[in-house]
C-alpha cells in the first residue's frame, strides 16, 4: 500500500482540485483521506455519502459544578485567559476563552471544577461517487485542527486500505507547516506539492519543502497557473531542480478548473488541456510508487 500526500503551504493553489482529480483517476484502487479539515472541500467534488459519523474530541474544557461552587473567585483570579466571569452572582465559564490548562481545577478549594473532553467536530467514513472509501472530518466553530485529528483521519484511511487490500491512500494534506502537516506526513510514500507563481507561492513552497526533506520523503511539484507569471515560474522551477524535487507538470491558467468545480466535477471529468496533463501526472506517479 502506497500513500500520496498532496500539500501546498498556502490556500487557493488548486490543491484540492488536483487531489480530487487523482481520486477519480484512482477510482476504487484508493482510499481517500481529507486532512485539510480547516477548509474541507473534497466532499464537494467526490460526493461522499457521510454514511458513518462519529464525534471527535480534542483537548479539554473546564466545567463548574454549581452545587459545589461557593463563589470564592479563585478560579477567575488564577485564569490567565479571562474565561471566568461573574454573572448574576455566580461564576460562569466562556468555553471559547478556556484553553483547557486545568489550573482552575487544581486550585479550586471546593473541588467544584472538573475538566471534560472538548468536542471539536465530527469524523466521517463515506463512499464516494466513484465507489471508493473516503475518510473526512468537519471542525466545530472555534475548534482548531490538530495533529491528533489528522492522525485519526489518516490512521483510519490506512487501516481501511490494509483491510480492503487497496493499492493507494490519497491524502489531501493540511495547510501551513505546523503540527498538523507533520502529522499528515506520517507514513507517506510520496508528496505532491501544488504551487502557483505568485510572490507568496515560492516562499511557502520553500518552507514546506524544508519540512518534507527532514522526513526523507520523495516529492514532486506541480506549478498551477504557471503562465500568469512566467518569471516567477522560472524561479520556482530553479528551486525545484536544485532541491532534488521531481518536476511533475506545468498547468496553464485554465478557467475549465472552476467551470468543472461549479458542476461539482473534477477536471478529469471534463474535456480540457489540464485533464490530459493531470492524467499524465497520475500515470507517472503510479509508476513511481509501484516501483
Amino acid at each position: 500500500m502506497k500513500e500520496v500526500v498532496i500539500l501546498s503551504g498556502k490556500g487557493g493553489t488548486g490543491k484540492t482540485s488536483i487531489t480530487g482529480a487523482f481520486a477519480v483517476l484512482a477510482g476504487q484502487q484508493a482510499i481517500i483521506a481529507d486532512c485539510d479539515v480547516d477548509a474541507a472541500n473534497m466532499h464537494l467534488l467526490l460526493a461522499p455519502d457521510f454514511a458513518e459519523r462519529s464525534d471527535f474530541y480534542s483537548g479539554e474544557l473546564a466545567v463548574i459544578d454549581s452545587n459545589k461552587c461557593t463563589q470564592c473567585g479563585i478560579c477567575a483570579y488564577k485564569c490567565r485567559f479571562g474565561a471566568f466571569s461573574l454573572s448574576n452572582g455566580t461564576y460562569v465559564l466562556d468555553p471559547l476563552s478556556c484553553e483547557g490548562c486545568g489550573y482552575c481545577q487544581i486550585t479550586c478549594p471546593e473541588g467544584a471544577i472538573s475538566l471534560v473532553p472538548r468536542k471539536a467536530g465530527q469524523v466521517f467514513v463515506s463512499t464516494t461517487k466513484v465507489g471508493s472509501t473516503m475518510v473526512h472530518a468537519k471542525l466545530d466553530i472555534g475548534a482548531e485542527n490538530s495533529g491528533k485529528l489528522v492522525a485519526k483521519v489518516k490512521n483510519s484511511a490506512q487501516e481501511l486500505a490494509k483491510l480492503k487490500h487497496k493499492e493507494f491512500v490519497i491524502v489531501d494534506g493540511s495547510p501551513g507547516i505546523g503540527c498538523p502537516v507533520v502529522s499528515s506526513l506520517a507514513g507517506a510514500s510520496y508528496v505532491v506539492l501544488v504551487t502557483e507563481p505568485t510572490v507568496s507561492g515560492l516562499h511557502d513552497l520553500e518552507r514546506i519543502a524544508g519540512v518534507i526533506q527532514k522526513f526523507r520523503i520523495p516529492m514532486g511539484c506541480i506549478i498551477n497557473k504557471f503562465d500568469i507569471n512566467p518569471e516567477m515560474s522560472t524561479q520556482i522551477s530553479h528551486f525545484i531542480s536544485s532541491n532534488g524535487i521531481d518536476y511533475l507538470a506545468n498547468i496553464p491558467f485554465d478557467p475549465s478548473f472552476t467551470k468543472a468545480m461549479a458542476d461539482a466535477k473534477t477536471i478529469v471529468e471534463t474535456q480540457s488541456p489540464a485533464k490530459l496533463i493531470i492524467e499524465e501526472v497520475w500515470a507517472t506517479l503510479t509508476k513511481k510508487l509501484i516501483n
Binding site: 483537548g59 490538530s146 495533529g147 491528533k148 492522525a151 503540527c179
Partner: peptide
C-alpha cells in the same frame, strides 16, 4: 499520549 491534542 496519542490522544493528546498537543505536545504528543
Amino acid at each position: 499520549v496519542k490522544n493528546e491534542a498537543h505536545g504528543a
